[in-house]
């Protein structure tokens, strides 16, 4: 009995009341790990992407292919429909700008195809907006002439 009393009088070690913070810490850590895995390490891969969602560089390749096919076949309607898939805000300007870049890179052949399609797009669309100052950089008819060789 005395022993028990003695034991009761002994200062009991204070138990720190840590609560459930460690559970919350574990949960947060887990959510971070799980999200990192599912978003960056092993993300969902889409298999039904639309051409408009392609990266800019891939859109450029798509656009040049459309332009080259147009130059080869002359099928404007088909080229127009394909170009529409890219959802460019101003397809005429986009084609012109890409043609300029191709020309600057020394690829006159691509520049010609792009400019040809841009030209067709402009001439066959009666509802084309009135050119403004932003249209001044659009290559003109002098662009299609390849002046540089590879």
């Amino acid at each position: 009995m005395n022993e028990i009393l003695q034991k009761l009088k002994l200062p009991t070690p204070t138990v720190k009341n840590k609560g459930a913070w460690f559970i919350l810490t574990g949960l947060i850590l887990g959510v971070i790990l799980g999200t990192a895995y599912s978003v960056w390490i092993n993300p969902v891969v889409l298999n039904n992407a639309h051409p408009a969602s392609l990266k800019a560089s891939d859109k450029d390749i798509y656009r040049i292919t459309v332009a080259q096919v147009y130059r080869a076949t002359g099928n404007f309607d088909r080229a127009y429909r394909r170009l529409e898939l890219l959802n460019d805000v101003d397809p005429f300007f986009t084609l012109g700008a890409q043609a300029q870049r191709a020309l600057a890179a020394g690829d006159g052949d691509q520049a010609y195809a792009l400019a040809l399609l841009a030209s067709a797009l402009q001439s066959r669309q009666p509802t084309q907006p009135v050119p403004t100052a932003t249209f001044q950089n659009i290559p003109t008819q002098t662009l299609p002439i390849p002046t540089q060789t590879h």
């Binding site: 947060i28 887990g30 971070i32 790990l33 799980g34």
Partner: peptide, 27 residues
């Protein structure tokens, strides 16, 4: 257990809840 539950929730977030951004897709 908390970490495991968190990981499961994180994976569910990444694969199911967070909308898959349909931008910068590969051809």
């Amino acid at each position: 257990i908390a970490i495991l539950v968190g990981i499961a929730a994180g994976i569910f977030l990444g694969w199911g809840i967070i909308p898959v951004r349909d931008v910068n897709s590969e051809p």
